[in-house]
């Protein structure tokens, strides 16, 4: 790892000031950034640690409105009793990220700001129609995730929370890489007052996306059987040593079927 200057931010305002220094990067759980720095894929001059900021932590559920602080760890999301009632699908998703030690450190804000094409949370936030709150503004999820490792965050802008309305039904199904356990395909299905939405991670050439074909079939009938014969086009899907685009296209339909069955269970 190259030399770096560490700063621990006491508040979001403090972090916003500190991040202006040199080529600074925001650090949350560090489960991606620290490994990237170790391999010298990332070499920030300064790190601004957000993980000790109180105002960024915790899950709030008020009626149907769920708000999760950006520095809330996957472990805390996976074990939040109020969230288990309001949106068990998101609790399940968080419990599938990495391994227990990674879940103790990694955070929801860090995950979405990094927008890894195989990250789990982007699928959930896109399907739930969530809003990403920053220290400057509020951004709808479909305007936030912009491609591989890209978001609409501006230089130095800090994600402070995500918020969404709890769906009537939802589920997440993940087909995992057998060794590293990330999503080769992950499908989050949500049924709310605005209809059905289905978001796919791990598969898109351009990161997380919504599957129009599956949404159209489920809009008519929210049942796994409605997806019989539905073909997801392989165009714009990733091919790598683990799975071809055609295989991923098939997996999207299979994971969607399982997710709908789980959401209806």
């Amino acid at each position: 790892m190259y030399s770096v200057n560490y700063h621990r931010a006491a508040s979001v305002a403090d972090a916003a000031k500190l991040v202006k220094a040199g080529d600074a990067k925001l650090l949350s759980g560090g489960m991606t950034l620290i490994p990237a720095m170790k391999t010298r894929l990332a070499a920030p001059s300064d790190l601004v640690d957000l993980s000790k900021i109180k105002e960024l932590q915790g899950v709030k559920v008020s009626g149907k409105t769920v708000t999760i602080g950006a520095a809330t760890t996957h472990f805390d999301v996976a074990n939040d009793e109020k969230l288990k009632k309001a949106c068990p699908a998101l609790v399940h998703l968080a419990s599938l990220i990495g391994d227990p030690a990674v879940r103790h450190r990694g955070t929801i804000g860090g995950s979405i700001a990094n927008n890894d094409p195989a990250a789990d949370y982007p699928a959930a936030l896109l399907a739930l129609g969530a809003t990403i709150v920053t220290n400057k503004r509020q951004i709808a999820a479909d305007k936030f995730f912009m491609g591989l490792f890209e978001t609409s965050l501006k230089e130095g802008e800090i994600v402070t929370a995500v918020t969404f309305t709890a769906p009537a039904k939802a589920a997440y199904e993940k087909f995992r890489n057998p060794a590293s356990r990330y999503a080769i395909v992950g499908v989050f299905v949500a049924k709310g007052k605005d209809g059905v939405s289905v978001a796919v991670t791990g598969a898109g050439d351009d990161g997380v996306f919504r599957s129009k074909e599956i949404e159209a079939a489920l809009a008519k009938n929210f049942a796994a059987s409605a997806l019989e014969g539905v073909k997801v086009p392989a165009k714009n899907l990733m091919t790598d040593i683990h799975a071809s685009a055609d295989y991923r296209a098939n997996l999207i339909a299979v994971m969607a079927k399982r997710a709908v069955a789980a959401a209806n269970a």
Binding site: I34, D49, S51, A101, V102
Partner: peptide
């Protein structure tokens, strides 16, 4: 936690 993925100063 994995101590290879955390800075001492963190």
């Amino acid at each position: 936690v994995k101590s290879c993925s955390m800075l001492a100063v963190q």
